[in-house]
């Protein structure tokens, strides 16, 4: 079996003027995944998520609100970081649709695992609020869809984006069968992610200080996240794959190398192989240095491809 790669051109047309969360991020990834080693990927365009998919994580009113706020021309600012352009609503539906298709393909055994190169990202979007470049919470939607549509009982989201996924934590907060584990720099945006935030016992936050390198994140994975994941025993692992903990990233102060992201992906692939038949759905979150982003995604997808063989 192979790895499914989902993306869509409309995700490139979602623009926020002057923002580091730019269309060129997906172009850098597309370029990085052009080489021969990625020819075995099963490449597909994201389908459009339906309203009932989005409603798994967000209220019906919220979806309509985002649709109604999307301008016919020009821009509409939702928060200090997040702007809607005429293509944003459609791009957000494609990003969530990619997550839905990835779950369907992985849970049915059609592919071994999947990576969604999509934007806008999702992990800051709470039940009722778009923020931090995020409109719909793609990772939470993926996990909740796996439960509703495929009978998975226990779902885990592992988030190694440098920023805490406050939105995913908010959506999973009182749901003991939905695990959220995060490594992130703290203090930093969005301000949440302390060890003391544990939800229904299903939230494991492992904050790292500015300047922490690969050894610290490996320690966090080996000592806290992986044992907690082992105890939780998920039926599917969803990865909120942000690559902004890279040393070259301009928006944060961690010092991971591309090889450290290989290690993180390998660990999650090994875990999934042993505990849930290798089922992984990985979704792009942050990562703002274009060269580092391309290199890291190529490395991440390379490990997923190997794991699926």
């Amino acid at each position: 079996m192979t790895t499914l790669l989902l993306s869509h051109q409309i995700c490139v047309r979602h623009e926020m003027p002057g923002s580091p969360e730019s269309p060129s991020r997906l172009e850098a990834i597309e370029q990085a995944l052009q080489s021969e080693q990625f020819s075995p990927l099963q490449r597909e365009d994201c389908p459009t998520a339906l309203k009932h998919h989005i409603a798994l994580a967000h209220g019906g009113d919220y979806i309509d609100e985002i649709r109604d706020l999307t301008p016919e021309s020009g821009y509409f600012r939702v928060d200090g970081d997040t702007t809607l352009c005429p293509h944003s609503y459609e791009a957000a539906l494609k990003a969530a649709g990619g997550a839905i298709r990835a779950v369907d393909a992985v849970m049915s055994g059609e592919v071994a695992n999947a990576f969604c190169a999509v934007r806008p990202p999702g992990h800051h979007a709470t039940k009722h609020q778009a923020m931090g470049f995020c409109l719909f919470n793609n990772a939470a939607i993926a996990a909740l869809h796996a439960r509703q549509q495929h009978g998975a009982e226990r779902l885990a989201v592992i988030d190694f984006d440098v920023h805490h996924g406050n939105g995913t934590q908010d959506i999973f907060w009182d749901q003991p069968d939905m695990f959220y584990g995060s490594t992130h720099q703290m203090p930093l945006y969005p301000g949440s992610g302390a060890v003391s935030e544990t939800g229904a016992g299903n939230i494991v936050n492992t904050p790292l200080q500015s300047g922490a390198d690969g050894s610290k994140i490996k320690e966090a994975f080996n000592d806290r996240l992986l044992p907690a994941l082992h105890n939780f025993s998920p039926d599917l692992v969803v990865i909120s794959a942000g690559f902004d903990a890279h040393i070259d990233d301009p928006l944060a102060g961690l010092r991971l190398t591309t090889d450290d992201f290989r290690w993180l992906t390998l660990k999650l692939a090994e875990f999934s192989d042993h505990h849930c038949d290798g089922r992984i759905v990985s979704l792009l979150e942050g990562g703002y240095d274009l060269r580092a982003l391309g290199d890291c995604v190529a490395t991440h997808v390379d490990v997923l491809l190997d794991a699926g063989l």
Binding site: S19, P20, D79, G80, D81, H124, G132, F133, H163, N166, P187, L188, Y189, P190, G191, S192, S210, P250, L251, A252, G253
Partner: peptide, 23 residues
């Protein structure tokens, strides 16, 4: 700065700049 970072009263794009000013 510490109060604003803890309360999440800082934009994502500028939070690293503000953190570094705090340092």
């Amino acid at each position: 700065i510490v109060s604003r970072l803890e309360q999440g009263d800082v934009e994502l794009e500028r939070s690293i700049t503000i953190y570094e000013r705090g340092e």
